[in-house]
């Protein structure tokens, strides 16, 4: 088994005080391994978003520990946590959060701008990331000119640009139609497999969750069930990976399998 990239120990998050107190997370202990794909599944109010925020260091737990690469992060200064997020994480959001006034390229290179990378290197890496996602021709377009699928691909390019260890995807297909969703899912899982990026997906979409190697089922702030093994849809099952969990993993034959033009 490979090392854990993210670990939690007795993670508790409580909102509010007194009688209005709400226990969003009631003591979670688990690990996410390097190169793994994990789905956090649950209905709204189950605590899955809270958990993702804690894992992504966007929020502090009421008690318990989050460790990144074996190092607890609770005691780091906010500035150090910020730069850790910038270095190691990529984010894909349901609502995209693209800045409509800026070009696609500017949106995609935002993490590098925040990291303090120079403009020429930023643009070079931005174009490379967009090329990887078949979006290079849209680099100079305004973000508002894109279709939903294109927006999400731009978001994925943005999440990739700093070569993250972990990509957090919060309902990445929530705003997309089913054909587009499939393309975006394919892109995410291909990146996960070919670049070894750890993928943490928060979703209530069973189909998306089923493609992950491991699923943490959440209910009322607790992990009520843990499933392992991807359950591929029959049409896409073609080969078996020899990576971390070889028994059940799908593998796509092409290096860039999302050339189908489904993301419109």
């Amino acid at each position: 088994m490979s090392t854990a990239v993210l670990e939690t120990e007795n993670l508790v998050k409580v909102y509010g005080r007194g009688p209005a107190q709400f226990h969003a997370l009631k003591g979670l202990t688990f690990e996410i391994h390097r190169g793994e794909s994990v789905a956090i599944v649950g209905k709204s109010g189950s605590g899955k978003s809270t958990l993702m925020h804690l894992l992504a260091l966007l929020d502090q737990p009421t008690s318990g520990v989050v460790a990144l690469g074996g190092r607890p992060v609770s005691r780091l200064k906010p500035k150090a946590v910020s730069s850790l997020r910038n270095d190691t994480f990529g984010f894909v959001f349901q609502q995209f959060f693209l800045n409509p006034n800026q070009t696609v390229l500017d949106n995609v290179t935002l993490p590098l701008k925040i990291a303090g990378v120079g403009k020429s290197e930023r643009n070079q890496r931005g174009i490379a990331a967009l090329e990887q996602l078949e979006m290079a021709d849209k680099a100079k377009n305004k973000a508002t000119d894109l279709s939903g699928g294109q927006k999400q691909r731009a978001c994925i390019a943005r999440a990739l640009i700093n070569n993250p260890d972990v990509i957090f995807a919060d309902e990445p297909t929530g705003n997309l139609d089913s054909a587009t969703s499939e393309t975006v899912e394919d892109i995410l899982f291909t990146l996960h497999q070919e670049q070894g990026i750890t993928l943490v997906v928060v979703t209530h979409d069973e189909d998306l969750a089923a493609k992950c190697q491991r699923r943490l089922m959440m209910q009322d702030g607790l992990i009520v069930e843990e499933q392992t093994g991807a359950t591929p849809r029959p049409a896409q099952a073609s080969a078996v990976s020899d990576r971390q969990q070889p028994e059940n993993q799908t593998r796509r034959g092409r290096r860039l399998p999302f050339r189908r033009g489904g993301a419109k």
């Binding site: 966007l58 906010p78 910020s82 730069s83 850790l84 994480f89 800045n99 935002l110 993490p111």
Partner: peptide, 16 residues
């Protein structure tokens, strides 16, 4: 607000 949230999520410090 959302843009600020995004920049913070992507690692921009409060100082910046």
């Amino acid at each position: 607000t959302r843009e600020i949230g995004l920049m913070k999520a992507l690692g921009m410090s409060s100082g910046k």
